[in-house]
Structures are given as C-alpha cells and as structure tokens.
C-alpha cells in the first residue's frame, strides 16, 4: 500500500486584515501590515496557503518602567521615558513590523496622565515612525474610556488598532474606532465563548468583521502558556471550520508576560538551579512566542530585540516550504 499524506479539507479561512493607512488611503503610514488569510493550521503548506506571515510588534511604554532586569534594560536604557525615540529605535534597529504603544502613564494609581498628554504622545510616535500602531490603554476601564476618544482622534485616519474592548467595556472604544477609522482588539479571558460574544457585541455596533483583532489573554511559559496555546488552537480550528465570528486574526502579548516571571529576571545568585541569567529571559520570551506561533497567532507583541530577531528568523523558516 503506497503512502499518501493525509490532508484535511477545511471549509473556510482566517479573515485577512490590513493595519495602517498610507497617504493614498488618508493616513501617513509608510508601511502597512496585512495579517490573516490562512487556509490551514499554522504553516502546513502541503494543505493550504499561509499568504501572510505572522508579524511582530515591539511594545513601547509611554513612561520609563521600573524593575527591568539588566539583560533587557541595556537595549533600551537611553530611550526609556521617550516613547518616540523608543519607537524609532524599535523600528530602525530591531526591525519591528509595528509598534504597540501602551499608555501606562494614564493609570490613575500612577502618573495619571491626562487625555491630552496621551494624545500628544501618540502624535509624537506617529511622527517618529512610519509603521502601523497598536494603541493600548492603561487597563483602568474608567480612565481608558476617558482618554480613548482623544487618543483615537489624535490618530484619525491612520487605521491603528485600539486596545482593548471587553465584554463589560466595549462601547467607548468601539465608537471611537468607528468614528476615526481604526481597528479594535477584542479581549476575552481565555474563553472562546466570551471572545465570540465580544465580537458579536461590537459588530452589532457597526464594527466591520475585517476591523477586529482577537486577544484572548496570554500566559508565559511555565505560567499558563498551555491555556493560551489551546485557546489559540481551538480558535483557529473554529475559524477553518467556518465560524465567521471567530475568523479574525489573533494577537499574543509575549514580552511583558515572559519578562514578568522570575525565570526571566532572577539572578543566578538568587536562583542557582536555573543557571546564568544573561540569556534566560531571552530564551523565555523566544520559547513562549514560538509556542504561540505554532498554535496559530498572527501578531506577536514582544520586548527583547534578540528575541524579536529570533522570531523573525523562525517565521521566515516556517513560512518557507519544507526543504527536500
């Protein structure tokens, strides 16, 4: 009996979405990013097309973080506190396909920056780089609802991605995105049914299916990576199986998750059983990101330049046809 490769016949594909608007489309971006369109499980070229490789956004914080470990700090030290310079470095030196700007300064428990301050930051970052932007609030629902309309307006026409809409808090961000021509990230807590529900809620408000990115929470290697891994796999299977409300491209936040865990930052003196520190955090971020890639994510939000470079190489290798 001769051997034939068993193939699945999928009935649908992941939706294709373009982020960023060039001048011709009313924006100022010098490059755009297109994700999605996969016709099969991740990188199974014998079975279907993967027309758009996954992309990497480098995360930029709008104020200097505290407590970053040396292996991470040394690459960003001179740009911390200057989001425009940070974004510029991330694109020019580290090859970011996108910037994910996180407005931590807005947090009422911290600096409590105003909506105007945030809008100004966004404009400075838009000026500094030509790649598309993901703009993410501070995580406090009330404050994010206060700043997001101004942030959205500051980037009107640029087709940015605004984050994030949740089951309990989606109206303001959704209305802002609709008004100013942006996309949104719909977030759910590792729950495919809630994800679907948020997607339905925002489309009921008039959001186009093509303007939605899904984010179902991420866990780092050793800290729940398997939950996110399986949710990504299940969502991709649902998309290929024809569920229109789960066919949007998926995003995974890796950098902040991976570097938060002590394996990534605890010194060898504190944790001798884990070996030298210099590469441990990079490996943690790389391992976490690579697992999400195999599970089907489309956008990786990352921190360390070395980890970013490794993932770019891995994506290139996986997107290529198998070598004979």
């Amino acid at each position: 009996m001769p051997f034939t490769i068993p193939k699945e016949r999928w009935t649908a594909q992941v939706q294709t979405t373009t982020i960023g608007a060039p001048e011709a489309d009313g924006g100022t971006r010098t490059s755009t990013v297109t994700v999605g369109g996969e016709q099969t499980l991740p990188f199974l070229h014998f079975e279907g097309e993967t027309p758009n490789p996954p992309v990497i956004a480098i995360e930029v914080l709008d104020e200097a973080p505290t407590g970053w470990p040396e292996p991470l700090l040394k690459h960003y030290q001179e740009v911390l506190g200057d989001p425009a310079a940070w974004a510029q470095k991330a694109v020019a030196e580290f090859g970011a396909d996108m910037i994910c700007l996180r407005l931590v300064s807005a947090n009422p428990d911290g600096t409590n920056a105003s909506a105007d301050d945030c809008a100004e930051t966004i404009q400075s970052v838009l000026k500094a780089v030509g790649v598309p932007l993901i703009i993410w609030g501070c995580g406090d629902d009330d404050k994010d609802n206060e700043i997001m309309p101004f942030c959205s307006q500051a980037a009107a026409g640029e087709r940015c991605v605004l984050g994030s809409a949740t089951q309990d808090n989606y109206k303001t961000i959704c209305a802002s995105a609709l008004a100013d021509g942006h996309l949104i990230v719909n977030e759910s807590p590792l729950d495919i049914n809630i994800q679907k529900q948020v997607n339905i809620l925002v489309t009921d408000m008039g959001m186009d299916l093509n303007d939605i990115i899904m984010y179902q929470i991420t866990g780092a290697l050793g800290y729940g990576v398997e939950y996110a891994y399986s949710i990504l796999e299940r969502t991709r299977l649902a998309a290929l199986g024809g569920d229109k409300m789960l066919q949007m491209p998926m995003l995974s936040i890796v950098g902040s998750e991976a570097w938060r865990v002590k394996e990534a930052w605890q010194s060898e003196e504190e944790a001798p059983e884990w070996g030298p520190l210099d590469k441990r955090g990079i490996m943690w971020e790389v391992a976490t990101a690579s697992l999400f890639l195999h599970a089907g994510t489309d956008i990786l939000v990352m921190w360390h330049p070395e980890a970013v470079a490794r993932l770019h190489d891995l994506i290139a290798e996986l997107i290529a046809s198998p070598q004979a």
Binding site: L221, G222, V225, E226, Y229, S230, E263, E273, W274, G275, P276, L277, K279, R280, M283, W284, A287, L291
Partner: peptide
C-alpha cells in the same frame, strides 16, 4: 547541557503535557 537552556524545554514539556 546547561541548566538555563534545559529549563525552558523541561517547562514547555510540563505545560504541553498538562492534562487540560
């Protein structure tokens, strides 16, 4: 052979093989 390189592999295996 080094602990820092084996730790992510051991951890990835634990996670992937955890009974959901």
């Amino acid at each position: 052979l080094t602990r820092d390189t084996l730790l992510p592999l051991i951890t990835a295996r634990l996670n992937i093989y955890t009974d959901p």
